[in-house]
Amino acid sequence: MKTHKTASSTILNILFRFGEKHRLKFAFPSGRNDFFYPSYFERGQVEGYQPGMCFNVICNHMRFRYLEVRQLVPPDAAFVTVLRDPALLFESSFHYFKNVVPLTWKLSGEDSMSEFLRDPWHYYDPDGINAHYLRNLLFFDLGYDNNLNSESPMVEARIHEVEARFQLVMLMEYFDESLVLLRDLLCWDLQDIVYFKLNTRRGSAISQLTPELYEKATNWNQIDSKLYRYFNATFWRKVDAYGRERMARDVEELQQENEKMKRVCIEGGQAVDPESIKESDMQPWQPLGEKNIQGYNLKNNIEKRYKRLCRKMLTPEIQYLTNLGANLWITKLWSHVRNFFGF
């Protein structure tokens, strides 16, 4: 379940690579890069869907609807999602989506987020276009009412529902530990979870939250805060069950492998601003009116054994999705040709 602004694009790249490597069957959105978000997910939104079809991987943005997803995957499918500190998520979402949320257009100046948090109800309309990006976005993505009273017993009930449905709830703040738990859950190898950070903003575009703003953002997103606190506790219980020392060793091993791949793949060893990206295929999507999302340049003369992996690890989400969709179409066409000619 791909949540917004939680490093989920990086996780998506991991899933795309694993699925492609093992020729798994993806449920892709029909003609889009999301499942008609922010509408609720429906099976009919899947490309080529017919009743009774079963898929190995569903991982594009959606507003979650458990029973619809459940009908598309095997009985033993693993349900996984990722959360982020709600105050930090709010900061990221506010700036990333501000040009598609009319509620923020009333705000002016460089400190518009501070102005919003000074008196949120002066600006916020629960029924406003794309207003969900401004309050309890995690709860909304998981399919629930993000404008519930935070003291309603329904909030706790929904949190327990998430726990019952998802085998693993990862935390962005403990990303490497989360990937180690994911590898353990799915019986993967270390190479399956190596990664580069994708879809990240340049440092100068990130607002530094003062303690006062952090508290205001946390209180404004009180439902997400309850959700996060609950799964922070369950996360560390899973780490304890895995073993703290074992976890530390595995995290170190993952980080060493990531550093090795940086040296192998990335020119300069780090992300660059969009205007410095040389290949158009490596250009990440930019939010409306902004050019803050960084990307990478591939090294020249990469060893042959790493060339394919390096390119895939660095390919932005939309381009990778497009490539996988094209490969799916070619596979379908070839299957029809084989059936027609009987070979």
Rank of each mutant, 00 (worst) to 15 (best):
N130E: 07
R135Q: 09
T81A: 04
L298G: 00
V101C: 12
A233K: 14
H4E: 12
V251Y: 02
D184R: 02
A7I: 06
Q256T: 11
G48M: 11
G243M: 00
E303F: 09
S92R: 01
Q283Y: 01
I14G: 00
N60K: 12
W236D: 03
L137A: 05
G268T: 13
L186R: 09
I159S: 10
Q45H: 12
L309W: 00
P86K: 05
M1Y: 03
W329R: 15
L324A: 04
L67W: 06
E212T: 11
E42K: 14
D273L: 07
L190K: 13
K304Y: 11
C59P: 06
I129G: 11
A241Q: 03
A217T: 06
V155Q: 07
S276R: 13
G243E: 00
L72C: 09
S9W: 10
W105A: 15
R202D: 08
L89K: 14
T218E: 04
W220E: 06
M113I: 01
V101D: 08
V239Q: 00
Q283W: 02
D184Q: 05
E317N: 12
R43P: 01
P153I: 04
Y320G: 09
R158S: 03
C310Q: 04
M282K: 10
L137S: 07
H132P: 00
G342C: 08
A78G: 08
L324Y: 01
L328E: 08
L168Y: 09
L333K: 14
F18I: 15
L142C: 07
S30R: 13
K332G: 04
E267L: 05
N301Y: 13
L181Y: 02
K106D: 06
G44S: 15
N199M: 09
S335A: 14
S112K: 10
H132R: 15
L148S: 13
Y296I: 04
A78R: 13
E20T: 06
S114A: 15
A77I: 03
R118M: 03
K332A: 13
V73K: 06
E151V: 11
P38G: 12
V169E: 01
L182G: 01
A217V: 03
V251N: 09
R183I: 10
A157M: 13
Q45A: 10
Y123V: 06
S8I: 04
M154R: 12
A248F: 07
L298M: 08
I159T: 08
E156M: 07
W121Q: 11
S8Q: 11
M313P: 09
N146Q: 02
Y40L: 13
T210D: 12
S92D: 10
F235R: 00
L186S: 08
N300Y: 12
E290R: 03
N219E: 14
M172A: 09
S335W: 15
V101G: 07
L254R: 03
E275V: 14
F55E: 02
E173F: 12
V194L: 11
S8V: 09
I330Y: 06
W188S: 10
E290A: 09
L321E: 12
G295S: 08
L182T: 01
H122L: 05
